[in-house]
Each structure stands twice: as structure tokens, then as C-alpha cells.
């Protein structure tokens, strides 16, 4: 009998702790599939963040390091510099990557550090129960923006892909979404390119993935997908922001 669907080898055989309808599970699977397809599990070291994906070190069947909140790109830099032939990726949320760890993110990108960054943008702090993130949209209600994010008080959300694309260091930056089968496939291709670039020693790659957090958005999984399409994609346009191979940009 032909097996048409199975757990990727790079994904550990343990249940996820993620809420139903959460994008983390989908993206974990995509990363694991890419690791399998590129046959790099034995050389891969993942860096888990602080955030809902903190337990990523239990979920990927590769060597893992757990980093302090926001420090994953610095930790990954240390890992990569120690063994440059290994493949090193970070997996980070928006609070981790775009607030407390902004400096680490920007400078790893500026150095062109030869690592792969998987960036989960769900416009909220998931793990701590739904506070405002640097990516929270204007008007979006969160625990710490209970009247909606106001420009006068809380300023504007950060578009990380656009910002990092202004740097010379990165080789590839793309914003994707996992709200549909088509977009999930597109995300997987982007993740694959981001890993392949590292194998080809092209330097820093980041895939930003617009993601859902039904629990803290206060929506059902299906409603969340709608909210992402209607509100996040207009503010965070999908597409390639940087590609040194000359791919078409947004």
C-alpha cells in the first residue's frame, strides 16, 4: 500500500499543546516537511523562542536550543558560528522577534548571518494571554489595548519584512500566510527556499507567516481565518520583499 500522508520524520511523535485552529501547528509541520525533503535533519539545530512555541524543542526531531525571550537570533548566531556547516533556524513570534528582540533580529539580518528565521506574526502576544504586540493592528482590541490600539497612545504596527528588506544583509525575505491551501503551499515553498539559501551560504533568510490566534482573538478557528484575510493581509501584504536571486517583488 502506498503511504500518501504521514508525520514528517523531523516532527516528534508527541501531541502539540497548541489551541485548535492555531497556525503554529501548521507551520511546525511545514518546517519539518522541508527538513525531511532537504534531508538535513542530522545537521539541523533549531532555536525555540519564548512565546507559545517555547516547546518547539520538544516538537522538532532535531537538536534544539531554547533561547531567552527575543534572543533567538543571537543564540542562533552563536550556534552557527560554532559549527558553520550546520543548518540553524529560529522560530519566533512577533513579540519575541519584533519587540523585545528587535535589536537581535535587525543585527542578525544586517550581518547577513547565514541562518533561517521563521517568523509567526499573529498580531498578538499569545502565550501571556493576549496583550498588544508590536504587530497589533490599529484599532485592534487586546488585553492591553482594551479600547483598541490607538495611534496617539500606542503608535503604529511594525512591518518587519519591509523594514528588514531595506538592509543589505538578507538574501531572502517573504511574507506568507497559512489561511488557505494555496497559501500554505506557498509558505512551504518559501520555507524551503529559506533553508536552501542557507545551505547555499547565501545569508540571512526570513519567512514571515501571517497566523491566527483564535484563543486570544476571541474568534472561532474559521472566523479567525476570515479576520486574518480581511484585516491582516491588507496591512501586511503578502509577497517577496527581498530576493538576491532576483525573484519578483511586491
Amino acid at each position: 500500500m502506498e503511504i500518501v500522508f504521514q508525520r514528517p520524520k523531523a516532527l516528534a511523535d508527541v501531541p502539540f499543546h497548541y489551541c485548535s485552529g492555531c497556525s503554529h501547528g501548521i507551520v511546525h509541520r511545514l518546517v519539518a516537511e522541508v527538513i525531511d525533503e532537504l534531508d538535513i535533519a542530522g545537521d539541523t539545530i533549531g532555536v525555540a523562542p519564548v512565546g507559545c512555541s517555547v516547546f518547539a524543542y520538544n516538537y522538532f526531531n532535531v537538536d534544539m536550543q531554547q533561547a531567552a525571550h527575543g534572543r533567538a537570533p543571537a543564540v542562533a548566531t552563536g550556534v552557527k558560528r560554532a559549527n558553520p556547516d550546520n543548518i540553524v533556524f529560529t522560530y519566533q513570534g512577533d513579540g519575541d522577534l519584533a519587540a523585545i528582540g528587535t535589536a537581535e533580529t535587525v543585527h542578525a539580518a544586517a550581518r547577513g548571518e547565514n541562518i533561517t528565521v521563521i517568523f509567526i506574526n499573529n498580531a498578538i502576544y499569545g502565550m501571556t494571554g493576549g496583550q498588544m504586540a508590536p504587530t497589533t493592528l490599529v484599532g485592534q482590541v487586546t488585553q492591553t489595548s482594551p479600547y483598541g490600539r490607538k495611534i496617539e497612545a500606542q503608535g503604529y504596527p511594525i512591518r518587519m519584512s519591509e523594514m528588514l528588506a531595506t538592509l543589505e544583509g538578507p538574501s531572502f525575505i517573504k511574507r506568507c500566510s497559512v489561511d488557505s491551501v494555496k497559501n500554505i503551499n506557498d509558505t512551504k515553498n518559501a520555507i524551503k527556499k529559506a533553508f536552501q539559501n542557507q545551505m547555499d551560504k547565501k545569508g540571512f533568510s526570513m519567512v514571515e507567516i501571517l497566523s491566527t490566534c483564535p484563543t486570544n482573538w476571541g474568534l472561532s478557528p474559521v472566523e479567525s481565518l476570515g479576520w486574518l484575510r480581511e484585516n491582516m493581509i491588507p496591512h501586511y501584504p503578502l509577497g517577496v520583499y527581498k530576493d538576491i536571486d532576483g525573484g519578483e517583488k511586491v
Binding site: 536550543q65 534572543r71 543571537a74 543564540v75 552563536g78 550556534v79 552557527k80 560554532a82 550546520n86 537581535e104
Partner: peptide, 12 residues
């Protein structure tokens, strides 16, 4: 960042 790079390298 420096001490976290040390963390990564030491861990490696």
C-alpha cells in the same frame, strides 16, 4: 546579544 551568542556557541 553577546552573552546570548555565548549561550548558543557554548550549547553547540
Amino acid at each position: 546579544a553577546a552573552i546570548n551568542m555565548v549561550y548558543g556557541a557554548a550549547g553547540a
